[in-house]
Design a binder for these strands. Structure first.
Lengths: 188, 188
DNA sequence: AGCCCAAAGCTAACGACGTTAGCCAGTCGG
DNA sequence: CCGACTGGCTAACGTCGTTAGCTTTGGGCT
């Protein structure tokens, strides 16, 4: 029996790809094993179980989104940055629905949770977007929650097909960005 | 063997309660049967299976939210209505996380889908909120998507414990309502 | 070069769960 | 009072996640 040369990273990466293809709930240990040319029990040499697997996919997704955001925000500020950030997140969710679905779950558990770190990086990027607006420091946390709620809600609804098709979603997206931009620009 | 007096409504109601208690993913046919004093196969006399069950829970949830919204919006308009609607949805999700989780799933399927009807009632209420604002008719759809995305995203993040505890979530909620209210009031 | 043992794969098996088939009793209309 | 429909049951199967325990590989140390 030849070695397959697996390690946690390879397994998680394959699982993430599979999740995007068939949907997170359909990522079964058997299917993943088959994809990797291995028998299901062998996977347990690399991940602790299905829960652990999903958690690792979530970390991967948050890390990737964080990277994408960092790239997208380079040299941008204000409305430009807001639009870029929103577009980046929306694009990622549409492109990687399975990965993103893994992040919609679990409360942070341990104190030194690797998911926390990845999540914080995303938050940092969103906070950077707010730098370009006259937001009172005490309101920053609220504005951050606005951005998170809105991007998350929009992405989930679009990915789940929750919007009727009558009107273009792109148009709504642009409208929403504009709405937030205007609201954040006001100083009173 | 005495009759248990079940019917679809009783089964779905019990399942919804169970979902709120133990979380939707943990609503197993066995657990639900036990709760109803019955053996698992008996449930299939009333619902077609687990997928059907979740779908019916979703319809129940949308119907209840629709009712709550209708009540909450009685005699209110403008900012008052907006705040009432947002509070109603937020309250429902916190009170019935399992039921709400059932609605976060897939695209309407059949043409005469009972879920569509229930969903439309909710949308109608949200549209009524917008009546009190100077929103251009062509922008109504966008504003509706704003409300849906924001309420949904906020509710999910709060229910999932996605917000850090440093700052009060109630405060952020009030800030968000205010933000949307101001944005919708402007006419240009 | 050759040994050795940790790691990585395997088979077998178990328990939980959803679901189907088929049987039997309780109830209700005629 | 009878019969048939209905709602409950037991038995059984397939899938899935997971554990136990065996085998083999291959890298590192002598």
């Amino acid at each position: 029996m030849p070695r397959a040369g697996l390690d946690p990273a390879v397994v998680v990466s394959a699982a993430a790809g599979l999740a995007d293809e068939v949907g997170l709930p359909n990522v079964t240990m058997g299917l993943l094993a088959e994809r990797l040319g291995v028998r299901p029990p062998s996977l347990y040499k690399h991940v602790a179980g299905q829960a652990d697997l999903v958690r690792r996919i979530a970390v991967l997704a948050l890390t990737e989104v964080g990277d994408d955001l960092r790239d997208a925000l380079q040299g941008r500020a204000g409305r430009d940055a807001l639009e870029a950030a929103a577009r980046t997140i929306r694009h990622y969710v549409l492109e990687h629905p399975g990965r993103y679905a893994a992040t919609v779950r679990l409360e942070p558990q341990g104190p030194d949770d690797p998911m926390d770190a990845a999540g914080k990086r995303v938050l940092t990027s969103l906070a950077a977007v707010l730098e370009g607006y006259p937001v009172d420091p005490t309101d920053t946390i609220h504005a951050l929650r606005l951005l998170r709620s809105l991007t998350h809600g929009f992405a989930v609804l679009e990915a789940a097909g929750g919007f009727q098709l009558d009107t273009d979603v792109d148009e709504s997206f642009a409208w929403l960005v504009d709405f937030v931009d205007r609201g954040l620009r006001r100083t009173d």
